[in-house]
Design a protein around this nucleic acid. Structure first.
Lengths: 350, 350
DNA sequence: ATAGTTTATGCAAACGTGTGCATATTTTAT
DNA sequence: ATAAAATATGCACACGTTTGCATAAACTAT
C-alpha cells in the first residue's frame, strides 16, 4: 500500500479537500473545524504520512539543524563536548550535523561552506583555527556561531565565544606544586591548539616568576620545530619527556592529559617513579586520567558543560536573545601523580 | 551589498537571462554557450552565490545526508567508529547527522523517525537495540540501513549488517589463557549490549568445555539483576570483581576493555598484582588499554574499519550495488595483563 | 428580511532548484 | 535559396510545505 512518500496533497485528494486545509488541520489550526481536523488527522495516520522536513525548511527558512565542527572525535575531550552539544540540541529538537576538521584550517573552512550550503541555523566550532581571512568570510556568511576554546586571538562582537580560563588553570597547578615544595617546575607543551598552549605557557611563566623563581629556558619544552602535525599527544609526551629529564625539574605541568599520559609511559620505561621521583600534572581531566597508575592530578575542564552552554548560547542567538561571552573556571583535581618534594628523591631504578 | 541569500533567480535578473539558463550554466551544461556560461559563473562568484542545498534536496529527492545513531559518544569505542564513518562519508560528500540513543530502544526509534522526516539518504546504527516491531517500522520506512554490531538476533534480507566475530574473539582469548596454563577462567559480563554479551558468554562456555574444563556457574558473573541501566562499564567491572575473587579463577575474560579497566582498578585497591596473581583480558582494544598499568591484553576490534566499511556498504546500497553482510575477524593483542599460571601465586598484600 | 459578522475553506504565491519540451536562432547541407 | 539540422535559450511544471487573501456559507443582530 504505502508505495513511497505520502504528501499532504495525497491526503487532500483522498479527503476531498485542498492541501491547504490538510496543512492547517495537521497543525491544529483553529481555522479548521474540529470535525474536519479529526478526519484528516486520522487519515494522515492511516496513510502513513511523514512530514517532509526538507520542504518545510525551504518554506520556513529554518532547517532546525546546527553544524558542529570538531578537530577530532577519537580525542576523549571532544567526545565529552559533543555529548553536551547533542544533549541540549536534542532537547531543543535540533539535529546536529558533525564534521571533523582534523585540526586543519582549510578543512575547517570547507566544512563551514558546506554548512552554509545546507543552510544550518547555527554553527559551533571547537578549537577553531580560523585565520583572519576565514573570519571575514564567516562574518559575510552571517550564520550565528559559537566558538568553544577558540585558538584564534581575534575577538569580534559578532562572534560568541566560550572558553575555559587557561591562565587560571595553570595558576592552580603551579600553586599546588609550590605548596608541595617544588621549585624547579617544567612545562611540556603541545602545538595543535596554539592559543591555549601559549596562554598556558605564559601563565606558567608568570606564576613561577611571581613566586620568585626564574623559569629556565630548558624547563619549557614544546614539540619539535619541524612543523609536523603531531597526530597523537600521547606520543608527543612520550617523546619529549627525556629532554625534560635532562633538566633538573622535580615537577612537570603538561599541556593536557594525553601529553601527561605519554610522559607517564616514558617514566615507566625509564624506571622513574611517579610521584616520588617526579610530579606530573595534566590538564582536561579526561576519564582516563583517573584510571592511570598513578591516577593523574589534573586541571579539570567542565567538558560536557562546555558543550551544553555553547549550545544554549547558540539557542539564545537563534531566538535573538542577548548572549554574553563566557569564561569558565577550571578546578584542580588532586590525585596521586603529584607529591611533596623531598631531597632523597634519587630515582630508584629497579 | 550581499544583503542576504542570492538565488539563481537574482543572478538571472542581473544577467538578463532566465533562471533555467543560470542553473544550467552553473552545472556546466553543454546546452549553454561557452560565452554565457563564463559570464554567469563569474557573475555568480561576484554576487556571492551559494547554492541552496535544501532546495536542491527537494528537487533531486536526495539530501546527501546520512544519519548515524550511536548509543554513546563518550565511549571511546564509538568515537573510533564515528571517525571511520565520518572519514568515508566526508570523502563522498555526504554530511553526517549524529544522534545519541543512550542505549534506549525508544529513543533509538525516535531518532530514526526524525531521520525519516529529514529524508536522510541512509542510516547507520551502532549497537542497535531495536525490537521486532521497530524492525517492521524500519522496513516500512524504506531507508537503506546498515547495522554495526547489532544487538538484535533477527536477520533480514533488507537490512545489512556488519559485525565483529564475537565468538572468534573469545576463542582467541581462551586459547591464549589455556596456553598460559590457566584452567579456572572467569567471564565478567555486561548487559548494555545483550547480544554480543550472550555470544561471548556462549563462546566462552564452549571453548572452555572443549578444552575439557567444566565452567563453574560462579565463574560467570553478569551485572546485578535489578535492571539498572549501568551508565559506566568501568564501575561495573570495579563493582563485580570482588565476587569474581571469591571464586578460584586465575584469569578473567572481561566483556570489554572498560570492564577490564574497572577490574584492574579493583585489583589495585585489593592489592592484587596483575598479571602475577590474576590474568585479565579485555575486548575492543581501545587506546586506553595500552596506557594502563599493566597494559591490557585484549581482543582487538577494528573499530575505525568498522565505521569505514559500514559507510562503504551504505554507499553501495545508495548506488544500488550488491552488498553482502560482513563478519570481521578480531585479533588478539597480547600485552602485559596476562601471564603464565604459576602455583605460588598467593596475592601479596602490601 | 437584510446587513453585518463569524466561521470554514480554497486559491495562489512563495521558498530555490532542476529539467522536459517548445521555440528561436544559427549553422550546415543540398 | 531553401530545407534540414544543430545550437542555445525560455517556459512552465515539479519537488512539498506554509500562509495571506478572497470567498462561500452559516450565523447573529436589528
Amino acid at each position: 500500500m504505502r508505495s513511497q512518500h505520502i504528501s499532504i496533497q495525497d491526503i487532500a485528494l483522498r479527503a476531498g479537500v485542498s492541501h491547504s486545509t490538510v496543512s492547517r488541520a495537521l497543525h491544529n489550526s483553529p481555522l479548521i473545524s474540529a470535525e474536519v481536523r479529526e478526519r484528516i488527522q486520522t487519515l494522515a495516520r492511516e496513510m502513513g504520512y511523514v512530514p517532509n522536513a526538507i520542504a518545510r525548511s525551504l518554506q520556513n527558512q529554518r532547517t532546525n539543524t546546527i553544524g558542529l565542527v570538531t578537530t577530532s572525535i577519537s580525542d576523549p575531550f571532544f567526545g565529552d563536548v559533543v555529548k553536551g552539544v547533542e544533549e541540549i540540541a536534542g532537547a531543543a529538537n535540533l539535529s546536529v550535523v558533525l564534521s571533523i576538521s582534523h585540526n586543519d584550517p582549510t578543512q575547517e573552512m570547507g566544512i563551514i561552506e558546506t554548512f552554509h550550503q545546507r543552510r544550518v541555523d547555527g554553527i559551533i566550532i571547537a578549537s577553531s583555527r580560523m585565520t583572519t581571512g576565514d573570519m571575514k568570510r564567516l562574518k559575510d556568511i552571517r550564520i550565528p556561531t559559537v566558538l568553544i576554546n577558540s585558538q584564534s586571538d581575534i575577538f569580534h562582537d559578532w562572534l560568541r565565544r566560550i572558553e575555559v580560563d587557561d591562565q587560571r588553570g595553570v595558576q592552580l597547578a603551579v600553586e599546588h606544586l609550590l605548596a608541595l615544595g617544588h621549585r624547579a617546575i617544567g612545562y611540556l607543551g603541545s602545538e595543535g591548539r596554539p592559543r591555549s598552549n601559549r596562554l598556558r605557557l605564559r601563565a606558567y611563566k608568570e606564576s613561577i616568576t611571581q613566586a620568585g623563581i626564574l623559569p629556565r629556558d630548558d624547563w619549557m619544552i614544546g614539540p619539535p620545530d619541524h612543523e609536523v602535525a603531531q597526530e597523537d599527544d600521547v606520543v608527543l609526551g612520550k617523546t619529549l619527556l627525556p629532554r625534560m629529564l635532562a633538566t633538573e625539574v622535580t615537577a612537570i605541568i603538561c599541556y593536557n592529559d594525553m601529553v601527561a599520559v605519554g610522559a607517564l609511559l616514558a617514566c615507566r620505561e625509564h624506571g622513574i617513579h611517579i610521584p616520588e621521583a617526579l610530579s606530573i600534572i595534566g590538564f582536561d581531566d579526561i576519564a582516563m586520567a583517573d584510571y592511570m597508575m598513578p591516577p593523574l592530578t589534573t586541571v579539570h575542564q567542565p567538558k560536557v558543560e562546555l558543550g551544553r552552554i555553547a549550545t544554549q548560547m547558540l539557542l539564545d542567538l537563534l531566538h535573538s536573545r542577548p548572549v554574553e561571552n563566557q569564561l569558565l573556571s577550571p578546578t584542580l583535581k588532586v590525585r596521586a601523580s603529584t607529591a611533596a618534594y623531598s631531597l632523597d628523591r634519587v630515582p630508584d631504578l629497579d
